[in-house]
Each structure stands twice: as C-alpha cells, then as structure tokens.
C-alpha cells in the first residue's frame, strides 16, 4: 500500500537507482578546530604559523568548530571569526559542543550543527537533539504551609510563595525560598548538599538547617528577626546574612 502510493506520486525511493538523486547517510572524517581561547591575540598568528607547516593539506579543508571549551564563555561574533578563518584557507562548515547561546551565534554565522564527537568533553556538552540534563523541577507551593504540615522537595528546590506557620516543616534537597514569613522549620540540602541555601523574606524560623547543620531561633542574632535574609553554610558553620 505504501509502495503503490509512493509510485503514484513519483516520490523517489531511497533505494530507487533510477531517481535523479540519492539521499544516503555517510560517515566522513572532518578536521575539528577546538576553540580554547578564540579572543586570544595570539590565536590567528599561531594558527597561521601552524597551517603554514603543511599548506597543501589544509588548503580549503572543511572544518568543524569545536566550541565545547567555551561553555562558560560569552559568545563572540562567529561570522567575523569565520571570515578570518577563510582568509587562512580554511572552510568552516559546522560546529559542535555548543551551549544554546553559542548555538545561536554559530547558526547566525551560517554554520550547521554537528553531533558532538567522541573527542569532545561529554560532561560539559549536551548531545545534539537531547534535552538539557534537567535538574529536578523545583516544587512551588502557593498555599500557606500550616502547622503540622511537612513539605519535601526531593532532589530540587522548594519555593513557597505564601506564609509558613509555626510548627510547619519545609524540607528540600536543594535550596529553600520563602516569599512570605518563614516561621516553623526550614531544612535545605537534606541530601547533604552543603551549597544549598535558605532564602526568606521575613525570618521568624524556629529552626534552620543546611546539610544537617542547624541553628535554633535563639542561636540566630535577633537583628535578623523579621528581616529578609539568606542562610548558607560556611565550612561547618551556618551564616545568616541580610539581603538587599
């Protein structure tokens, strides 16, 4: 049935040798140019010197820009960058290992995305087409958290946009944010994450804890009572800091 439809509409099959074109997959070896510091003034002089050692080999060579070392850098003007590469006789055709921002810059420069090869740093780059490794979604609570209620955000942050009553308990493996009065208890970094923090608009907590280290209300300097604060772990000690 599917075959006869294709025949009727003259859609060339990928297996049809008489078609005016053939679409096939191919596995090609390309040069990649790993951009460690593209804005280094020595970048182009150094590259030119290296290419000069084997001019015939690199002339009009298609290359793929490996952007994986730049995941934390701000995108540069890749169009202008590619013009300078062409000036050296290279033909930039694609890129790989890009973050979303770099991807936009590269596509603006007319480069196409290549799947990250085995040579790239897998940890820092997402595979093409796969979703970003998503942290556990934050749990958002917009109702008041009442006495005796316990709310836990496993593997993620807990965001409460309502007041928290005395006798309530907030637990999160990540950070805890309370955009209301924080009374009751707040325990962040339950899974042992010492970088977790607690943020609140008005501190009235009975107890705060990060990664198992805690302070009860009477150990917290009274000057922070009712104030917007963040609480973080500094070594083995909880630090309360005013916000804003």
């Amino acid at each position: 049935m599917a075959d006869s439809l294709q025949q009727q509409r003259h859609i060339p099959s990928v297996l049809d040798d008489s078609a005016p074109f053939q679409l096939r997959g191919a596995s090609l070896t390309l040069l990649t140019l790993k951009l460690v510091a593209p804005d280094d003034p020595q970048f182009f002089p150094g590259l030119a010197a290296m290419l000069g050692q084997a001019p015939g080999f690199y002339r009009n060579a298609p290359i793929v820009l490996d952007l994986s070392p730049l995941v934390r850098a701000r995108p540069i003007d890749l169009a202008a960058f590619c013009v300078r590469l062409r000036g050296l006789g290279l033909l930039p055709v694609g890129f790989q290992g890009a973050t979303v921002e770099w991807e936009q810059a590269a596509e603006a420069a007319g480069l196409s995305a290549f799947p990250a090869g085995r040579a790239t740093d897998q940890a820092s780059v997402r595979p093409r087409g796969a979703p970003l490794a998503k942290p556990a979604a934050a749990r958002v609570v917009s109702q008041p958290v009442r006495s005796g209620q316990q709310i836990y955000a496993p593997q993620g942050d807990l965001i409460v946009t309502a007041p928290v009553s005395p006798g309530a308990e907030l637990l999160a493996d990540g950070h805890i944010h309370v955009y209301g009065k924080l009374r009751g208890r707040a325990l962040a970094g339950m899974g042992g994450d010492a970088t977790a923090r607690i943020f609140c608009k008005a501190l009235h907590a009975d107890l705060v804890s990060i990664a198992g280290i805690y302070l009860v209300s009477e150990q917290i300097d009274q000057k922070f009572t009712g104030k917007a604060v963040q609480i973080r772990l500094d070594g083995e000690k909880l630090v309360v800091e005013a916000l804003g």
Binding site: Q143, P144, V145, R146, S147, G148, Q149, S165, P166, G167, A168
Partner: peptide
C-alpha cells in the same frame, strides 16, 4: 491559633 492552623492544614489536604 496554632491548633487552628493545624486543623486548617488538615482540611486543606
């Protein structure tokens, strides 16, 4: 007030 708060929480859940 504390007990009422608890009861409200139970009714809400």
């Amino acid at each position: 007030v504390r007990d009422a708060d608890r009861m409200i929480g139970l009714m809400a859940s």
